[in-house]
Write a protein that binds this DNA or RNA. Structure first.
Length: 718
DNA sequence: AGCACGCCGACT
DNA sequence: GTCGGCGTGCTC
């Protein structure tokens, strides 16, 4: 009987390919081994995911696997299952997800090397080469080098272009060489290091009852979800004993955190509480360190893993507990390929391992809070948000950039030792220029959105494709002599602050001006050191961790986030305001917050200011129910991408036609132009599908997206 | 993602 | 008249 192998590749393809397993390779041909297999005209690295017998459907000519790389599987059955489920759910490539789950020592990298061809050597002998070509050819000789190496040895800056030209003429050949993975020294086989154990003597009743609630499923080793709704301190008070219990049962623990920066303190405090080392896994760690952590987890020497979303792929043999801390954070969603949401992955994993799934946050997503409450697994803990003194200023009837009341607050606060922060989520000087006579607004030709205005550089810049051009002196349409800036950005706020309060040390913090990590740190150090009176920043500043509490915080127009046509706009606004408010010192320490907005009564802004999540939730869930949005429905947004509108529209119509065949349970919105083209110079047409049942939506998505090879993105909600 | 096949503009 | 642009479709 001929054996067939199903192979997936780390390419953006979501399908598997069947290959014949050579008779002599039947032994190691197990799911989870890496293989080399011919695909098209190349031999590709792939992952064997299943073995089966030749069936009657295999009528096409099958190729043979070229080589089985590993003598034994490098992926466990549970890693295969997890990545498979994620690929199904998010329509991402299984192969790319498996690639993400590989330890550094097993990653195969290719390096492009350049070699002179016979005709290249002859041309060198006959001296028919140009000056630069000759330099490259001399450097090459009979060897193969990388372009980087050639650039260094010849000091020709445009080496890449030169090589491309020479390759076209057939003078050189570019070959992909697989680089043997460096032998990475394995970790010394130390036992888990005992550490100073910090014990909590004050176990709150709420913590005690939360632990009590989780005991049953934990001891029975069955899947059960829980949501710890409460402050960080209280959550940690639950995580600690819970993790200890799981360890004592000889099972492993995965703790997911939103960002790398946030995981340091959590890891330390866990180590203190647990009295043993905690593994830390992050994609941006140096390879050696990542490999060592990986090996420690794999061997079972460390039983607790902390990391951001990619830590989901840590090689845990038997997880008894999966924690997703700060559940509300968008960083759990990987928006680049392969697209997946670690919160969904955490659930798949917990189900697969029969583990406890614990979410934690004091500002949960509306969906998760609702699910937890109606599913009876919401555990309320004490909050630890200190009270903040907040004032909301209505700027609907104000003329200037800063409302008078906002101005007053600044005046009383701008004195030595009271540094503050102003948040405004708008880069540049103005979001666009506007002709007051004819209404003309300069737009980007490629992206068809208005161009941002940078005053100092006197430039207009596209926020998507970064294309820039000088600002027009007069209106290009009607010749009017003035173009007015509209939609003030951080630079305009800085200018205004300097004008109103001369001598104030104002510094900006946005992606345009603090590009590098070093620049960011320098500004933050200066702010900490009291060398900056006012720091004006965008969302980027709001995502910085570890700043000392500011004496005052000004939040300018957070309602801008509500303008997005997205059912989660309110949630986003609430979260953003909440996040920014945390930069201010608590009221009892003299901290002050002022929010300037045109929508002072909007629940997302008002309740964030009152630090009342539950009141926000009650209002938001009513809206979601009324509109039939998640969590009362499952939604998916499909964006078809392409350069030309016509074929896109054609495909969108085809997609809608297919969606209609799925039955009346599916609501279809669109096709419509995707708001603000997502990719540089491309157009997007979107179709939104909505259904009461997630499974129905699943089936319909499969129907709509099944085989079409069009460029697209799929986002799922609920 | 690559890579080949296939139909419309600037050139020997 | 060709060379070559990248739009479209396939890879077991």
């Amino acid at each position: 009987m001929t054996l067939l192998a199903e192979v997936v590749f780390p390419l953006p393809l979501n399908q598997s390919f069947s290959y014949i397993v050579p008779a002599e390779s039947a032994g190691p041909a197990k799911p989870g081994v890496r293989v080399w297999a011919p695909l098209g005209r190349k031999t590709q690295l792939g992952f064997l995911v299943a073995v089966r017998d030749l069936g009657p459907d295999d009528v096409r000519l099958l190729k043979e696997i070229a080589m089985i790389i590993d003598p034994a599987p490098v992926f466990s059955a549970s890693t295969l299952a997890l990545t498979f489920r994620l690929s199904q759910y998010f329509f991402s490539s299984w192969g790319e997800l498996l690639q993400a789950a590989l330890p550094p020592s097993l990653e195969i990298k290719t390096k492009a090397k350049v070699r002179l061809t016979e005709s290249g050597l002859e041309a060198l002998r006959k001296r028919t080469l140009s000056k630069d070509e000759r330099k490259a050819a001399d450097a090459l000789g009979r060897n193969a080098f990388t372009i980087l190496h050639l650039r260094r040895t010849t000091s020709l800056k445009t080496m890449a272009a030169l090589i491309a030209r020479m390759a076209k003429k057939g003078l050189v050949q570019v070959v992909e060489e697989t680089v043997r993975p460096k032998k990475i020294p394995s970790a010394p086989s130390e036992r888990a290091r005992p550490m100073q154990l910090e014990l909590d003597f004050t176990i709150e009743p709420a913590v005690r009852s939360a632990l009590e609630a989780m005991r049953g499923p934990l001891e029975e080793k069955r899947f059960a979800p829980f949501y710890l709704y409460g402050g960080r301190t209280a959550r940690l008070g639950v995580y600690g004993p819970l993790i200890r219990k799981v360890i004592s049962m000889d099972r492993q623990v995965l703790v997911l955190v939103p960002e790398m920066a946030a995981s340091g303190p959590l890891r330390e405090s866990l180590e203190k509480r647990l009295g043993e080392t905690v593994a830390f896994l992050h994609g941006q760690m140096p390879e050696g360190a990542r490999e060592r952590e990986w090996q420690k987890i794999k061997s079972g020497r460390t039983r607790v893993v902390v990391g951001p979303r990619s830590a989901l792929f840590a090689p845990l043999a038997s997880a008894g507990l999966v924690i997703v801390d700060e559940e509300h954070d968008d960083a759990y969603l990987q928006t680049e390929r392969p697209v997946y949401d670690a919160r969904v992955g955490a659930r798949f994993m917990a189900v697969d391992h029969g583990a406890l799934l614990v979410f934690g946050s004091d500002v949960p997503t509306v969906e998760a809070f609702h699910e937890a409450r109606s599913g009876g697994y919401l555990l309320a803990l004490p909050g630890d948000d200190e009270r903040r003194r907040v004032e909301i200023v209505n700027d609907a009837s104000e003329r200037g950039l800063l409302a008078r009341r906002f101005h007053d607050v600044l005046r009383t606060n701008l004195r030595p030792g009271r540094s503050g922060i102003v948040f405004l989520n708008r880069r540049g000087y103005a979001s666009f220029l506007f002709c007051p006579r004819c209404g003309y607004i300069p737009r980007c030709e490629r992206c068809d959105i208005s161009l941002m205005y940078y005053k100092k550089e006197e430039r207009l810049v596209c926020r998507y494709c970064a294309a820039a051009r000088p600002r027009p002196r007069s209106c290009p349409k009607c010749g009017n002599r003035v173009m007015e800036p509209r939609g003030a950005g951080v630079e305009a706020v800085e200018e205004e602050l300097r004008r109103l309060f001369p001598g104030t040390r104002v510094s900006g913090f946005d992606s345009d001006r603090v590009r590098t990590k070093a620049a960011r740190e320098k500004v933050l150090r200066n702010f900490e050191g009291g060398k900056i009176d006012v720091l004006v920043g965008t969302q980027m500043l709001a995502h910085q961790a570890g700043l000392p509490p500011a004496a005052w915080v000004g939040i300018l127009n957070p309602e801008a986030l509500l303008a997005f046509a997205d059912f989660r706009a309110s949630q986003r606004t609430f979260q953003a305001v909440h996040r920014m408010m945390r930069f201010a010192a608590p009221a009892e320490a003299g901290g002050e917050i002022v929010i300037q907005t045109a929508f002072p009564e909007h629940h997302s802004i008002r309740e964030a200011a009152r630090q009342n999540y539950e009141a926000f939730f009650e209002q938001e869930i009513r809206f979601r129910r009324l509109m039939g949005y998640p969590p009362f429905a499952a939604m998916a947004e499909i964006v078809l991408l392409g350069r030309e509108e016509r074929p896109l529209a054609q495909k969108a119509r085809e997609l809608v036609r297919r969606a209609r065949t799925c039955g009346g349970d599916i609501e279809i919105f669109g096709p419509a132009f995707a708001p603000s083209s997502l990719l540089k110079g491309e157009r997007g047409i979107q179709v939104i599908l909505k259904s009461r049942a997630n499974e129905k939506l699943d089936a319909c998505l499969a129907e709509c997206l099944g085989t079409s090879g069009t460029k697209r993105s799929v986002t799922r909600y609920g």
